[in-house]
Design a protein around this nucleic acid. Structure first.
Lengths: 260, 260
DNA sequence: GAGTGGTCTAGACCACCTA
DNA sequence: AGGTGGTCTAGACCACTCC
């Protein structure tokens, strides 16, 4: 599409024209994933434009997620990797005893090594959306917040923030970095009488905020998926909330659910 | 964050500095949603830079989804609208008889008028990922494809493409624009013996391709959510597949599901 | 050191919107 | 008509990578 047709006047803007040509080469495989484009100076000379114009063309493609410029090295056709998929079965009891969380399993499937990192553990005043869903006050330090980063090999892929009502968290040892239970944090909740019965996940996508882009090291043109997860127990009570901010070029979601 | 601290040398790049200042004003509410920024020429003069530099600052904010430039009018702080949420219950039998599809219901909730438009109906050779999931050949015209656009007021918000194995679709009248069943397309499938039992939805997010951006009229810095939906019947057979490409600034997803 | 992308300047003209 | 963003020119210097 938008390729120049023989015999017609070509009134496309120069930057657009260069972008279309490069996009076409990428889509036909002429420029393979991982390969290097001509330099900005070469492209400019080839098309008889200023360097800035060739640069604008490359930016169009970068915004579409097709290429990634690397400072001092060149502009490369983006390789799209198979995604690490977070499934709705990740909380299933069937993973009890495997010792592997679904995230680590998915990493292993893609030949990557997953790991977690604890950023902070703090008792705080919750943001309004969290307070509302957990049914706690947003005026007092009513929740415990644990912030984590999930890594796949050397890439940070998810920023994970968990909020637990302080009335539930106090005295459980969840202020420590290491979760004091063999079945993880949800084992702790079960001991306190909250068995996960349903989950409610609100999903949206957006461009990362400046701070998130820095933490997740997202290249330009890569959005994040924002998942607000609420755990409900057997009585329909919301007892835990987690926000996942995920690099959309490395992770996705999968729901396999009954139609009720 | 990244604000200039008094007394320290400020070695930030000029464009970055302007962007930080504007971002701060937006985040504190000093620049309210919907309000107009100073013009590029004013910003440039105020900071003693070239116009291109002020322009670069605005582009940073546009990529973060904070502002939207409007040609001839100015640059405006983006209003974030409440999202039209596609829920996993949208296929539930409980909506039988309301006459309203969940999409239209959600639009009504946001005070908008929803409508559908049929773009094309064609018997085609399916893409590989579709063929694989439906268990049909990708070498013959083995599926019927129906392309729709969903509108909310005057905005196109979702591009919806449905693939049905031709062995199921033939003779059903699904080649016509109007679905020949009071309960819609899934009523047709039920008459042919396929009752929706489970759904499987693979979710990812990405920047729109050039063609999608044109159709959905996405402003810069707005990604799309890409949902690959598979319907499974009582025997676990995949009999229908739909791809949703959704503007992420106007739509989201919601899953409320049991933990199995 | 040579080549790459990143940022910036100081202009210019065009396309679009509002009055 | 005047103001706005959109695109472009023809340079410049800087930061980074690779040899």
């Amino acid at each position: 599409m938008n390729q120049h047709k023989e015999g017609e006047p070509d009134d496309r803007k120069p930057s657009r024209k260069i972008a279309d040509e490069l996009r076409h080469a990428i889509e036909t495989g002429e420029l393979a994933p991982g390969s290097k484009l001509q330099s900005e100076r070469e492209l400019a000379e080839k098309h008889g434009t200023a360097r800035n114009t060739a640069r604008a063309a490359i930016q169009l493609l970068a915004e579409e997620g097709l290429v990634t410029p690397e400072h001092g090295r060149g502009v490369f056709v983006r390789k799209q990797q198979p995604l690490i998929r977070l499934g709705n079965d990740r909380y299933s009891h069937k993973y009890r005893g495997t010792g592997l969380s679904p995230f680590l399993l998915e990493c292993a499937k893609q030949g990557k090594t997953g790991r977690f990192e604890v950023l902070s553990i703090e008792r705080i005043q919750p943001p309004a959306d969290v307070a509302e869903r957990l049914g706690v006050s947003d005026k007092t330090k009513s929740v415990l917040r644990r912030e984590n980063v999930f890594w796949a090999d050397d890439d940070p892929v998810q920023r994970v923030t968990t909020y637990i009502p302080w009335t539930l968290a106090r005295g459980t040892g969840l202020l420590q970095e290491d979760i004091p239970h063999q079945y993880g944090i949800h084992g702790v909740f079960e001991d306190k009488g909250h068995v996960m019965h349903r989950i409610r996940e609100e999903i949206s996508a957006r461009m990362p905020r400046a701070e998130e882009a820095r933490h997740l090291r997202t290249p330009p043109g890569v959005p994040v998926i924002d998942v607000l997860h609420t755990s409900l127990d057997q009585t329909g009570n919301a007892y835990e909330l987690t926000r996942f901010v995920m690099r959309a070029d490395m992770t996705g979601l999968l729901y396999d659910v009954p139609v009720e």
